[in-house]
Lab assay of single mutants.
Amino acid sequence: DTINITLPDGKTLTLTVTPEFTVKELAEEIARRLGLSPEDIKDTHNGKTLDPSLTLAEYGITPGSTITLEIK
């Protein structure tokens, strides 16, 4: 299953994830792909900052969802 990550420059990154991924694991994968530190990444969905300890499923993030990435 894939989700879309909207980057600060407007580009989109597509990642393969499972509903059990935590937001922290997602940030780590994004950081790895972009050459950043996971601590520099802030993920938001529907205007809410995502708690790193919760899973994508707990936020109702499903395949095809879009998450907005902010760099701290």
Rank of each mutant, 00 (worst) to 15 (best):
D1M: 15
T2M: 07
T2P: 05
N4L: 09
N4H: 11
I5Q: 07
I5H: 06
T6R: 15
T6S: 13
T6D: 07
L7A: 04
P8R: 08
D9Y: 07
D9W: 12
G10Q: 03
K11G: 13
T12G: 06
T12D: 04
L13S: 02
T14M: 09
T16F: 11
T16Q: 12
T16A: 13
T16E: 12
V17G: 00
V17D: 00
T18N: 07
T18P: 05
E20S: 12
T22S: 04
V23K: 00
K24A: 10
E25P: 01
E25V: 03
E25D: 14
L26E: 00
L26N: 00
A27N: 15
A27M: 15
E28P: 00
E29I: 08
E29K: 06
E29T: 09
I30K: 00
A31P: 00
A31C: 11
A31W: 07
R32I: 07
R32F: 07
R33V: 11
R33S: 07
L34R: 02
G35T: 03
G35Q: 07
L36D: 02
L36K: 09
S37K: 12
P38Y: 14
E39L: 15
E39A: 14
I41Q: 02
I41N: 02
I41S: 02
I41M: 07
T44W: 14
H45P: 05
H45N: 10
N46H: 11
K48C: 12
T49E: 10
T49A: 11
L50C: 14
L50F: 09
D51C: 08
D51V: 03
P52Y: 13
S53D: 09
S53L: 11
L54A: 12
L54M: 15
L54H: 08
L54D: 04
T55I: 03
A57I: 12
A57E: 11
A57C: 07
E58Y: 09
E58C: 06
Y59P: 01
Y59D: 02
G60W: 02
I61R: 00
I61P: 01
I61G: 01
T62Y: 14
G64A: 02
G64C: 02
G64V: 01
S65D: 10
I67E: 00
I67F: 02
L69S: 01
L69Y: 01
E70T: 07
I71L: 11
